[in-house]
Amino acid sequence: MARVHPLELWLVGYLLDHPEARLAEATAASREQRQEVYGWLFKTRHRSARDVRIRTMLEVEAFVGLHQRWQRLGYPFDHLVPSLATAIGSSGDRPAALAELVGIILNDGVRLPTLRIDTLHFAVDTPYETHWLPADNQRYRVMAPEVAAVLRETLSQVVEGGTARRLQGSFTLENGDPLAMGGKTGTGNNRIETLSRSGQVLQSKARNRTATYVFSWATTISAP
């Protein structure tokens, strides 16, 4: 009813009564409670339902860990939906987040804040004059520099000889030299599928096709 694991509630009560208790003491004191909470595991009559529930719990816990790691790299949503689309990295992201990820790669694994406004200056030459600037402590490392270097090389290979090779030479510097670029393409079909009772695909029809390309220049500028 509380949407909280019963052992968590028990542990809170136990620590209120025994604030100095260690893990070993709490484990020993919770023996009966742990057996009661997981008693359903020993009811073999409903083995199939039990196994499904265990797999569901493991899947949810796995995606909680994935979400924490994705958030460090700029994933903009509050939770992940456990699904195949999420597992392969094609679930509900935004262009701004993709651009931020490329910025992390270009900045040797350091995540910088996304700024829409550089400064705000109000009430000039009055007693209420206020000048707002971005905070300087909002940059932090989210991946090793070596990992970022490998990713930059991989992105450049996509343009040099991969699925984005048509971009070669599209942009040039003022002196006429080609601008070094990298990027990652992504495509997919939006389909309507008809399934049988057993889950077999009887018919699959593509309605439309989506495509995304996130790219970077040789400088610290990135854009979706």
Results as ranks from 00 to 15, higher is better:
45 R>W: 15
110 V>M: 08
128 Y>F: 15
59 E>K: 11
51 D>N: 04
94 R>N: 09
107 N>F: 02
117 I>D: 13
95 P>F: 07
90 S>G: 07
107 N>I: 00
108 D>E: 12
53 R>L: 05
91 S>T: 08
118 D>H: 15
124 V>Y: 14
43 K>W: 15
114 T>Q: 09
127 P>N: 08
114 T>N: 07
129 E>L: 04
57 M>R: 12
62 A>H: 09
88 I>G: 03
63 F>M: 04
52 V>C: 11
120 L>W: 11
64 V>L: 15
142 V>Q: 05
97 A>K: 02
114 T>L: 13
88 I>Q: 00
131 H>V: 00
89 G>Q: 03
66 L>P: 06
92 G>D: 11
118 D>A: 15
91 S>C: 06
109 G>Q: 05
63 F>A: 03
111 R>F: 10
85 A>V: 10
46 H>M: 13
71 Q>R: 08
46 H>I: 10
91 S>V: 08
73 L>D: 04
49 A>I: 04
140 Y>C: 01
114 T>A: 08
65 G>I: 03
124 V>S: 08
105 I>W: 12
114 T>H: 11
65 G>V: 01
96 A>E: 06
134 P>M: 05
117 I>Q: 11
141 R>T: 00
89 G>L: 01
93 D>G: 09
98 L>V: 09
89 G>E: 05
126 T>W: 11
104 I>Y: 04
101 L>H: 13
119 T>W: 10
77 F>H: 15
68 Q>C: 08
133 L>S: 03
132 W>C: 00
133 L>V: 05
104 I>T: 04
99 A>M: 02
115 L>H: 03
82 P>T: 13
97 A>G: 06
84 L>P: 14
63 F>T: 03
98 L>P: 01
69 R>S: 11
103 G>I: 06
142 V>N: 02
116 R>T: 09
104 I>H: 04
61 E>R: 12
75 Y>C: 06
44 T>I: 06
130 T>E: 04
85 A>N: 12
107 N>T: 01
83 S>Y: 08
96 A>C: 00
50 R>H: 05
114 T>S: 11
130 T>N: 02
95 P>N: 01
69 R>V: 13
88 I>D: 03
58 L>T: 01
138 Q>A: 09
106 L>D: 12
98 L>R: 14
74 G>T: 02
144 A>D: 15
144 A>F: 10
139 R>I: 01
107 N>L: 08
125 D>H: 15
48 S>N: 10
46 H>T: 07
77 F>K: 10
61 E>K: 14
118 D>E: 12
132 W>P: 13
102 V>Q: 14
77 F>P: 09
104 I>C: 06
62 A>C: 00
98 L>N: 13
109 G>C: 07
114 T>C: 07
111 R>Q: 00
77 F>Q: 09
80 L>S: 07
